[in-house]
Computed example of a mutant assay.
Amino acid sequence: MNNMWRAVARYARQQLVQSNPTDLEQILELWYLRLLALTKLGLYQLASAELDKLGDLSRAELTFEFHNAIPKQQQDSSSSGSMVPFELRILAARLPAWLKYPLVALERLTMLAVHCKKVVVNSISMMHAKEMGPWRQREAQVYLVMATQMMEMNDYTGAASTMEMVSKQFGTKKDGKQDLDILSALGRLYLQLGDIESAEKIYGQVDKEGSQNEAIVETVQMNRAFLLMAKGEWNQAAAVLRGILEANKENLLVVNNLAVCYVYLGQISTAIELLSTMTTQNPTSAGTCETAVMNLCTLYELRYDPATGHKVNVMKQVARWVGDSFQADCIKLQ
């Protein structure tokens, strides 16, 4: 299904105009939907201007308690606190980064994490355990977004420190086991830093805890492949990735990394065939994935001179399925 974000933005605006002014919950949900659509379209300046119209998202007027029209007998834990969707707060914090102000985004995310922690502490002191759980999850979510922001700023050391803190404070599940997705992500960050020894230790924990869990066999194998690639053992990494691909032929991450292995092994034609087949057979996922399309076009540039004709064919294929949020510059025709 195409990502018709322009239609979503228009629909949200139309619904906002027609909404009852007293129904703040619905209005704020619609604002989030519209701003999300605008950011997906890359219209960051417009999204920022419209977000400014909302004013301070933490002001009292946007809380349930401020509106005495809600009968007290209907109020419960779900109708207290802020009406602002948490996703809207995340979006508002991230928006400056897309406007080339990453430090402002990092500051806003930090303030949002502090807010989440305060709510958790207050819930503990007031013995509201039901409220504490969701806000702990939100706090962890904010830290993960912060780590992503740091990676986009090429601050992999800061991202790794943040992920280490997340792993220690939020990485243990109710059954006492570690969250293996967080550990795997931390291991990949260590590889980005070139710290292979630390990555091996992390992946060793994942192997130990995941050895009896069939659901994460693929994750364990991917970690092994990443480690081999970091060591420059391309043949062994390719063998591991081919094994994963046999079990899951639609894993785009595996295909991309297997193509990288083939490039380093000097098998550019094989890498092109692999990506081309994947994008053709899965047009609505791989065929419209900007990373996959850009990798394929880059390989065409390495293999052919000129490569324009091949990239035009890619554009024709993509145009049949792509939504209006697709960044066409990944085809590299300019």
Rank of each mutant, 00 (worst) to 15 (best):
M165K: 15
R138F: 01
P134N: 13
T162K: 11
M126T: 12
T172F: 00
Y143E: 05
Q137W: 11
Q149M: 14
M127W: 05
E139M: 12
L189R: 10
K118G: 08
G158A: 10
E164C: 14
V120Q: 06
M151W: 00
D179A: 07
K174G: 07
Y156F: 15
L191S: 11
H115P: 05
E164Y: 05
E131I: 07
I182E: 00
L193A: 15
G194S: 10
S184P: 00
N122G: 10
G176M: 06
K173S: 14
R138Y: 01
G176E: 05
S125F: 03
Q192Y: 01
D175F: 00
K173Q: 12
R138S: 11
C116F: 01
E164K: 09
S161N: 09
H115M: 12
I196S: 14
V120G: 07
V142L: 08
R138A: 04
M163C: 14
K173T: 11
S161L: 15
T157L: 14
T172L: 09
T162E: 14
Q149N: 08
S161Q: 13
D195G: 06
V120R: 06
S123I: 01
Q141G: 04
A140H: 03
A147L: 01
T162A: 15
V166F: 00
K173M: 13
G158P: 06
E131K: 14
T172P: 02
R188W: 03
Y156M: 14
V120W: 03
A147N: 00
K117V: 02
A129S: 09
W135H: 04
T157I: 14
D179Y: 00
T172M: 09
K117A: 09
L180E: 00
K168N: 13
K118A: 14
M151V: 04
V121M: 07
M146Y: 01
L186F: 04
G171E: 06
C116S: 11
T172E: 07
M165E: 13
K130W: 02
T172W: 01
G133C: 13
